[in-house]
Design a binder for these strands. Structure first.
Lengths: 350, 350
DNA sequence: AGCGGTTAAGTAAGCGGTTGAGCAACCAGT
DNA sequence: ACTGGTTGCTCAACCGCTTACTTAACCGCT
């Protein structure tokens, strides 16, 4: 029988004021009641310390003032930042963020999204692991979904805050090429290994265009694992130890990381291998996490404007929830290369 | 009303099997029904794709398989880590974490806690801003609360995962004293400025015992603000610029930060002031965030064992929820000083 | 006085489950 | 054959709120 603690209920307020529960319910939400009764009800409610039970309300109305926020992988420090920022943003608008972590697993991601839908979240913000999953379609039918980072190709979403990945990738690779790098390793987050993942395609295209040689290596966000992957990549670097990898693995002069978390792993691996970041090996990140500027050398990275993203995403979700139309439901974030000290001229370049 | 999408309901399963909704409800939860009917019901439910509505269930039973997780301040990177870890931990036990951020505001913290209670979370994990607030008492009566970091002095909690702050503080200050530091600035998170906050007391006591001079300065977790505070502290440092602060402000040779986030701010400020961390100014952190080992020099910090904390906290909460007794409901985490490169011998020390 | 139009409040049927009480059937035990 | 205890399921009352529909009152008009 529920919890023993007795909360005051709507009925009690009704009895105290001599009104029906319906009248009280309306009054408390300021719907077609006279000014006087509204006032009377408010007063009684305050005296009794009444607060509507959100669960009962949700059951009856189908709404919750709660927004689900689904992180693709909370090991990624930047996503932690993003979730925190979104949480603050929503809270400022009197909504609660129900934050969940898919841990980089596409199946879990959909399962959690369904759970959230069942919890009657009014809206769902998602930074998807697998944006092309078909499961999103059904979910987006039941609840307004705003996706962050990638568009959900199979679903009709309520909004999208996208990163112009092509522009970001081009910017970074152009930049590296300009510094004389011709062999670049790209560390992408592990995920569904669809060969046609847009980011991978962009990388290939840019590489072809610029005539540089890239090697794409999937890499976990967690620092320890990222360090491990980076170690393998770096020990093949020209300035590194005797080569242990396969002979056909060309050693990179620069590493382009699809998240700052991963870049931190590269820093760690570089330190182990006694390679100086910036001099022996250039590193570029992709998020601009606050910590990145504290590293030595500060990480050159791509800034997408975290706060703005959180704001826009929250705004789109809230608009959809409230049934408002928005002018543009697809926000494209432009990359800004934060040029700092971790990428310099390639060794041996004229 | 509610959403248009039709989920299969309990009644539909009942009709399909020719049983009462009660029987189906019991069957699905394996309560006193015959093996056969249970089987029959399960099969029907699976065919119809029935899944219990968590909201309705919550209203009727007073339970949700949801645990509230309330972060004192998600700007703190370590708390981000902690929340992520707890979320994973709970998810592994088929419970959902509802993560909220108090943003360092004690009032908001209690308001959010109440909200969570109203949302019928089965349990509440909290890393409190103000552990001595009286409001916790009422909350802890209504829902099992596990506190992390500090004990809730006014409430009967279901468990506590505490850091042995005294030991941690002693360890750090002993260590700094051993390196010859006699003027130390302590950067504590902003919070309710109760003069008798235990951590502050420990600091004073240790300082008295060791004969070192400490200055306690409150500091926000957010990197930008922390950098600002650190800047003011550091520009009074002996190796620093001409002193601009009040003349009676003794310049520290070491800074002890109550969180790694804050320490990052000090790194940033030190870089600006062209002070070498470790040589010109020693810095010690208090969390061991993964990134700390990637900094240059790697941050000497106090490791409390994040994963263990998350596990223990989740375990305590789940035990309380399930009404199980636990042997020890107060876990005390011992500090482990991760001695790395950011704290060295004080300048001018013999 | 009679009439459509508002506005204010009440009635009651849900929302989709859970759960105590009750009842029939069945099994021993005496 | 009668009692008493299980077992297995049904009934119906909730849980606490929302909301379509209805009724009542009151408005100014013709």
């Amino acid at each position: 029988m529920a919890r023993p603690n007795k909360r005051t209920t709507l009925r009690e307020v009704a009895e105290a004021t001599g009104l029906s529960t319906a009248a009280v319910s309306y009054a408390l939400r300021g719907k077609h009641v006279s000014k006087e009764t509204e006032e009377r009800v408010r007063k009684a409610a305050a005296e009794l310390g009444y607060e509507a039970d959100p669960i009962a309300r949700a059951l009856a109305s189908g709404r919750t003032s709660t927004v689900g926020v689904l992180a693709g992988d909370l090991q990624d420090l930047w996503q932690q930042q993003l979730m925190a920022a979104i949480g603050r943003e929503l809270l400022a608008g009197d909504r609660y963020a129900l934050i969940l972590d898919a841990g980089g697993d596409p199946e879990r991601e959909l399962a959690l999204a369904k759970q959230l839908r069942d919890q009657r979240v009014d809206g769902l913000l998602v930074s998807p692991v697998d944006p092309s999953a078909e499961g999103w379609a059904k979910i987006a039918e039941a609840v307004p979904v705003v996706s962050i980072g990638d568009a959900l190709s199979q679903a009709r979403t309520a909004g999208e805050v996208l990163f112009d990945n092509r522009a970001g990738i081009d910017a970074v690779l152009d930049y590296l090429r300009g510094l004389g790098h011709r062999r670049v390793t790209v560390l992408t987050p592990t995920g569904p290994s669809t060969p046609d993942r847009p980011a991978d395609v962009y990388v290939r295209q840019a590489a072809d265009r610029l005539g540089i040689e890239v090697q794409v290596v999937p890499c976990a966000q967690e620092l320890g694992e990222a360090t491990g992957v980076a170690r393998r990549v770096l020990t093949n670097s020209p300035a590194g130890r005797p080569r242990t990898g396969p002979a056909d693995l060309a050693p990179p002069t620069a590493v382009f990381c699809f998240s700052d978390s991963i870049a931190y792993g590269v820093y760690a691996a570089a330190a182990e291998a006694e390679l100086a970041v910036g001099r022996d090996i250039s590193v570029v990140g992709f998020d601009d996490h606050p910590v990145s500027r504290v590293l030595t050398p500060p990480l050159t990275t791509v800034d997408w404007g975290l706060t703005g993203i959180a704001k826009e995403a929250a705004r789109l979700a809230v608009a959809a929830i409230e049934g408002r139309r928005v002018r543009r439901k697809r926000i494209l974030c432009a990359p800004r290369l934060s040029e700092r000290g971790s990428a310099l001229r390639a060794p041996g370049d004229a």
